[in-house]
Design a protein around this nucleic acid. Structure first.
Length: 491
RNA sequence: CGGGGUGUAGCGCAGUUGGUAGCGCGCUACGUUCGGGACGUAGAGGCCGGAAGUUCGAGUCUUCUCACCCCGACCA
């Protein structure tokens, strides 16, 4: 436990893979760079989906679905957008296979070559704006506030489960607005929705801010982001919200008539979070005993394990616990009663610990006699006996407490690993010896940012919102700076 | 695409100077157990990544090939 409060670095990647494997979340597929999300991992993603989806709808958004294939020519319409994605696109060139003449199996039919190649979407701005063109004529058609839950493909050189896979699941919101102001407000609103979700459901504290031009999304005028700090001291971008200006409207010629009967280009935003959030969850809360899930996101919030010697005992305990199970269900607390006779109780304790189930209730013959249950909490691994009649109340309170505790613990970790650097030597020393968030002065130029990245692998994670102004000198060039920005090595 | 590594039972691995394949976990059956991944006994499970070569004989040597992993470049 203490270990998770200091930065983990050695074998971090092995530690991470171990947890993914032991908690049965996902595995590498035999298909290059792709991931199989296993049922338990997917259950967590479904929790993310359903919660976010509700939040989107509460802010006026609706779901839709757009094609997975994007004609190649669409990409060339927005120059900086292509640049951002061209190097990692999967391309469909043919539409048919045939049996090889030498009988060696199937081959691509050379006669079935597509006239124009199709790109498997790495993101959907282009196909969506091509579609929006036909949806928008008047200011009365605006705003369009669409989200889609989809898979996207980015042909990454190196992949890591959840953090970077060739194919991943995400949601992408694409909105169209009549005014610049409204689009900016939407961009900000959705970033705050993300921050709200990540902090209050995933229990991961984030820094909200705006990206430097270098780190900006291809085609955006501004990229807002939430940045979290992982237990090895590296930053992870947990979500982004882009103000796209009129770039895509111009590229796809999407104009509308405003109230003054003037023709104008539509203003756009896009925003997304992906299965990468699961990676963030793992790297933020897990300890040496495995995954630790915040109650608000756990597919199983409470697991009940009976301990018994005989079939009669087993039955008696099951009968005794039954009303609790029903009560939990009534209260919308997801509960699993693991009455599986093929596994021993000790085995189950370990199993659910690895899987991060927040609360475990055990009842054995002794507890049965005394009319108590043993309640164990995953975050601190503490156990206590609770009178049977108080269980429901106790668990309700405990779930809230665990949720808060996980957030506070992660927040403390972040604070303990956030430092200021005033000189280059200090900056480099911190990166090597105290990895984490580093606030430092920067002269504001992309060249300097590039140089810093080249020298140290550290990047500007964001310029935080409400960043205090402060006179200083750039750590690299010594040129004047008006504020510190957030640096870190990142995933 | 550079640099390093690994392919042998479902998983993790061992395999000596070349002599016909083993260990741990898991799995199956039975019994004893059951309050933190139980134990015993008996089993099932392998063309040693693929191809070619050297040899009386190749998991082991040679060449080629394929796949995966790690470290870089790229990235949500």
């Amino acid at each position: 436990m203490a270990k998770s409060l200091t930065t983990r670095q050695e074998n971090y990647s092995q530690w991470y893979n171990d947890i993914v494997k032991k908690a049965d979340l996902a595995e590498n597929s035999s298909v290059r760079g792709c991931m199989v999300i296993k049922p338990y991992g997917y259950a967590i993603w479904e929790k993310v989906q359903s919660t976010l989806d509700k939040m989107f709808k509460d802010t006026g958004h609706v779901n839709a679905y757009f094609p997975i294939f994007i004609p190649k020519s669409f990409f060339s319409r927005e120059a900086s957008h292509v640049e951002g994605f061209a190097k990692e696109c999967a391309v469909v060139t043919h539409y048919r296979l045939k049996n090889a003449e030498d009988g060696s199996g199937v081959v691509v039919d050379p006669d079935a070559k597509l006239e124009e190649e199709l790109i498997v979407r790495p993101t959907s701005e282009t196909i969506i704006w091509d579609t929006y063109k036909s949806w928008i004529q008047s200011y009365r058609d605006l705003p369009i506030l669409c989200n889609q839950w989809a898979n996207v493909v980015r042909w990454e050189m190196r992949t890591r489960l959840f953090l970077r896979t060739a194919e991943f699941l995400w949601q992408e919101g694409h909105t169209a607005h009549a005014t610049k102001q409204e689009a900016i407000e939407e961009t900000e609103r959705m970033l705050h929705v993300y921050a709200d979700f990540v902090e209050n459901f995933m229990a991961i504290p984030v820094v909200k801010g705006v990206k430097s031009p270098n780190e900006r999304f291809g085609g955006a005028l501004d990229t807002y982001c939430i940045e979290a700090l992982m237990q090895d001291g590296r930053a992870l971008q947990a979500g982004t919200s882009h103000f796209l200006g009129q770039n895509f409207a111009k590229a796809f010629d999407v104009k509308f008539l405003n109230e003054k009967n003037q023709l104008d280009y539509v203003w756009a935003t896009s925003w997304g979070v992906s299965t990468r959030l699961i990676g963030a969850l793992i790297m933020t809360h897990s300890d040496d005993n495995g995954l630790v899930l915040p109650p608000n996101l756990a597919p199983i919030q409470v697991v009940m394990v009976p301990i018994y010697k005989s079939e009669e005992q087993r039955q008696a305990i099951a009968d005794k616990l039954q009303p609790l199970i029903e009560k939990f269900k009534e209260l919308n607390i997801s509960v699993k009663f693991d009455n599986d006779d093929t596994k021993r109780s000790g085995w189950k304790f370990n199993e659910y610990e690895l899987k991060g189930v927040p609360v475990r209730i055990a009842m054995g013959p002794r507890d049965f006699e005394e009319n108590v249950v043993e309640i164990a909490r995953r975050d601190t691994l503490e156990k206590e006996n609770v009178p049977f009649d108080n269980v429901i109340e106790h668990v309700q309170k405990l779930l809230k407490e665990i949720q808060a505790n996980l957030f506070n613990k992660a927040l403390k970790f972040r604070e303990d690993n956030t430092r200021k650097a005033d000189t280059w030597e200090e900056f480099v020393d911190l990166l090597d010896n105290h990895p984490g968030f580093i606030y430092a002065h920067w002269d504001g130029t992309p060249e300097t940012e590039d140089k810093i990245k080249e020298l140290t692998k550290a990047t500007i994670r964001c310029i935080p919102f409400n960043n205090p102004l402060e006179e200083g000198k750039c750590i690299l060039t010594g040129k004047p700076s008006k504020q510190r920005v957030l640096f870190a090595r990142a995933y």
